[in-house]
Design a protein around this nucleic acid. Structure first.
Lengths: 341, 341
DNA sequence: TTGTAGGCGTTATCAG
DNA sequence: CTGATAACGCCTACAA
């Protein structure tokens, strides 16, 4: 009785052949007699032989694992993206290691170092909201590890990117609000420094300009973090303005919902007195009262595409510099928190 | 110029010493002269030497990775648990591999096989709602891999368990409803076969019995899956009953919110005509209208404790059979979807 | 205090 | 068609 798992050596000894023959038989090497191949496979089956992937990893100098770095997973957005990634990767030989940066640049750095240590084969990343410097990703690329950026762009970083046309979504939303007669549209922006924040703000600005609505600077308030408290504070500031906004375009549903909560508490009718439009179309956004108008993003599809792009690099040893940039179109979803046109 | 990363051999050659000496120096072996130790460490630093964990894995026959199996992550519940797990594990030498079973027994089996193949060191698992047979977990245990079960119990499986007293939470909720004058309390149960479904149902039943309220069998409807559609269908069945319920205790917030949605659509006042209490206390449950009464669970803490228990096993090589069973107490959170006492 | 040799499990290369 | 050997990078007896 041998201890531990069976190895090809065990099978070889049993069959009085060389380990290398066993290895070839198991791998369907063309130059192996059918008989021996069958014999080996039969015994392997009988002994419940499991190849030792750890040994393979060492030999091939790769971990057969890809890393996924996201800021958090408690919201629906990144969870859905990850589900999309997962659904693609499970059909490959790769394993996924999900890492949470908690929106912290420091933690993101630590994660990258860790992934690099375990010889990760590829990385999918949505950078933290603090991340301004992308050298850690460049270091990965230099050591031959393909990096695919999703959702949040890394300006200046040459890599594959799977993004959403946030500008377009924001423009549509604000343009719609204007179409319903809103004149004083405020923007609850996301954390500064995020590409998505930037893009959505720009969409807001351009929609105003296109409709010749003068911009009021104090109608733009950036929510520093993703907590309810931050959103509440920002909303209160808006509602206490002398010229109270008659509409709010929020960076995302979470903030929009907090804003609606505060507005309702202040006795304001939604959408009669204040219209609200969010971004993301989280599943529960249609269940709140009034149901939230928002901008839908193809989260699941983004996850799948990101994973597919990474896999193709991994397969083709594609060191080529032909980075892909895929931009999904979001869609405006009108519900009850905004007025009719 | 050598290609690839630096190894201890490179350092050894450079310093004209044996690789084993380098290894020992790097690991602070006591029997190494301070001078050589310093020299080695200095050169290692200079050359940016990174130990090859893949080689270590093979040597130690372990992957330094623990697997986390959950049914899904798009809801808040498991995401929050995972965040708790992650926050504990990052401080250890282990990596986490998160795997989604999609509530499927088949996929769970596949995952377990995969984890076993990559020589996972330990497993944290919340079984799928389809899983009735736990032999795959037993197989892991037999091969020396500690298994910690969380949230959903595996009856009959001897393993560490981190659970919530679902019975207690359900009992409290229903008892409260009765205290507010509800006489016809229905239960929207979870998928059959889940320990949590079972426990919450039992709490419901016992609360009725304690208050001497006769049970009406058709007031119990089990929602087969976790989709909105399933919940809607189940709710409609309840509301069309000749003796319409004046309260609904739902398996979780998701179902409760769907139910409220339907009830409101049907023109029913909540909580005046129908009280609703959910389970889980998802973050957005306080933002819907009316805000949802529910049962809070210490999700983050459960994640942390589960991870700590697993780590302690890993550290102590604890093959011992002293399995821990930790049961957290949930807390009733009363909001606006239920009446005052 | 340090060097040598062997092995972890697998595959690839080169013989035979 | 198959066998022996070396190698992946590191560690750990055993020797010196």
């Amino acid at each position: 009785m041998k201890k531990g798992r069976v190895t090809i050596k065990d099978i070889a000894r049993e069959l009085n052949i060389a380990p290398s023959t066993v290895s070839r038989a198991l791998n369907d090497h063309p130059a192996i007699k059918k008989e021996t191949k069958d014999a080996v496979k039969a015994l392997a089956e009988a002994l419940d032989y499991q190849p030792n992937l750890l040994a393979l990893n060492l030999l091939q100098k790769k971990s057969n694992t890809i890393g996924v770095i996201v800021p958090e997973i408690t919201g629906h957005f990144f969870s859905a993206i990850i589900t999309g990634i997962q659904d693609v990767i499970v059909d490959s030989e790769y394993n996924i290691m999900i890492c949470l940066s908690n929106e912290s640049y420091e933690e993101e750095l630590t994660i990258v170092k860790r992934l690099s240590k375990i010889q990760i084969d590829g990385v999918l990343v949505a950078p933290s909201s603090e991340t301004k410097n992308f050298d850690h990703f460049r270091r990965l690329q230099k050591s031959g590890i393909p990096v695919v950026v999703f959702d949040r762009d890394c300006p200046g970083l040459e890599a594959d990117k799977v993004l959403v046309d946030d500008y377009f979504g924001a423009f549509q939303a604000v343009d719609y609000l204007i179409g319903t007669g809103c004149k004083n549209i405020a923007h609850l922006g996301g954390p500064l420094n995020l590409s998505t924040t930037e893009q959505r703000l720009q969409g807001y600005l351009d929609a105003l300009e296109k409709n010749e609505i003068p911009l009021k600077k104090d109608h733009i308030v950036h929510v520093p973090g993703f907590s309810h408290k931050d959103a509440v504070k920002a909303t209160k500031r808006l509602l206490e303005l002398p010229e109270r906004p008659d509409a709010i375009f929020a960076y995302n549903d979470k903030i929009a919902i907090s804003a609606m909560h505060i507005a309702k508490k202040a006795g304001l009718q939604i959408p009669e007195e204040v219209s609200v439009i969010g971004f993301d179309d989280e599943p529960h956004s249609s269940f709140i009262t009034p149901s939230l108008s928002t901008v839908w993003q193809p989260v699941y599809g983004m996850g799948m595409l990101s994973a597919r792009i990474l896999l193709s690099h991994l397969k083709n040893q594609n060191t080529a510099l032909d980075f892909r940039k895929e931009v999904f179109k979001p869609e405006l979803v009108i519900r009850a928190s905004s007025r009719e046109k």
